[in-house]
Amino acid sequence: MLPHQRQYAQARFRSLVEESSGNEFEKLFHRAMELSHAGFMPIRASGNIGDLSADGWCSCHRTLYACYAPEIFNASATQRKFRSDLRGALDKRREQFDIFTFVHNDQRGIHPVISNLIAQGAQDHPGIRLQQMGPQKLWYEVMGLGRDRMEVLLGESIPVHEVAYDVGMADVEELLTHLADARSSAAPLEEIPIPSPHKADFNKLGQDSKRDLQEARPFVHLVERYYHDVIDVTERDEVADGFAAYYRQMRQEYGDNPDEIFWQMQGYVLGQGRPRPSRLRAGNVVVAYFFEQCDIFEVPPAGWTPGAPTGVLS
């Protein structure tokens, strides 16, 4: 798919999640996983035996999925559901899985109480991995689908013509606003070294891309401060996973053109519309932050210097 089509698909997928709960969300989850994983098996309840404490199973990764998507979130009810599903899976299906994934529809991320349950469960059951999958992680599972499969997932055709969508990465909309507002009072731009110069050279980035990184570097502390202040401790890792997944997809599509990959990463943050200068600068700060955190682009091997043999994107 073209970048603007993928962004359209992301916006529509987010809308589907917002509009669904209970069985409807479970159906959406089943459809997404079946389209993206050949080894996924949806599990439905049947008569007196129910679903034997599982809503899906993936043979490729020996992963068992338990899905819970209430219309209105309630921490106590979610706690009971998590404990019941985990206990039931261990009693009825222990030989079938190594990973237990709790799937939920909370757009804001996993509730702190549930994150504690996952951490405690990992300590109590060291033989299995416990993890969660919210709407954003579910999107990462399907974002690499081709257009035909994506249209099956969304239940509609994706526009072919080039259009501008102001969607970008939904996770960082508040962050972009924060950066755009805070930048004017932040440190003034001055001549500074290009961020991670060896990394930029190793990935063969051109002068325009390097300049964008250079100008953004004095303000990456704003991103760090933002993540330090947010309540949801998983938000940074969720966004980083999205950057890394999109980077891998773009590298697969544009592997011989690092500046095109860099441009696509900027577009992932900002969308395909024409942003205001303050928003464009904020978007570059976001890209620079994840560039320096090594979530995107390749890290030079120890001892590599410019002029040494070949970067990875040759």
Rank of each mutant, 00 (worst) to 15 (best):
R14F: 03
R31D: 11
R83N: 14
W263T: 11
P306E: 13
E224C: 05
H161Q: 15
V103T: 00
A119T: 07
S196Q: 09
Y246A: 04
D166R: 11
S115K: 13
A245R: 12
S314F: 05
E253V: 09
E71Y: 14
Y8W: 15
L154H: 13
H61G: 12
R225E: 15
V286M: 05
L138C: 01
G267F: 07
E173R: 14
R251P: 10
G206Y: 00
G50C: 02
L28Y: 01
Q214G: 04
G56C: 01
F291W: 14
Q249D: 13
L16G: 07
S209E: 03
G127Y: 13
F29K: 06
I43G: 03
E156P: 01
A180E: 04
V285Q: 01
W304D: 09
I110S: 05
M169S: 04
G88E: 04
D106C: 12
G273R: 00
L138E: 04
N257W: 01
Q249Y: 14
F25H: 07
R225H: 11
Q136E: 03
D166K: 07
R147V: 11
P195D: 00
R279I: 04
Q266R: 09
A75S: 14
A69Q: 03
G39D: 06
H198P: 07
L153V: 05
V286T: 04
W304C: 11
V312A: 13
N284V: 03
F73H: 04
F73Y: 10
F73P: 01
G121D: 12
F100L: 06
Q5F: 02
C60T: 10
E253M: 12
L270M: 02
E235T: 09
A164E: 15
G22Y: 14
L179E: 00
S278V: 00
H30F: 04
A32T: 03
G109W: 12
P126S: 02
H4D: 07
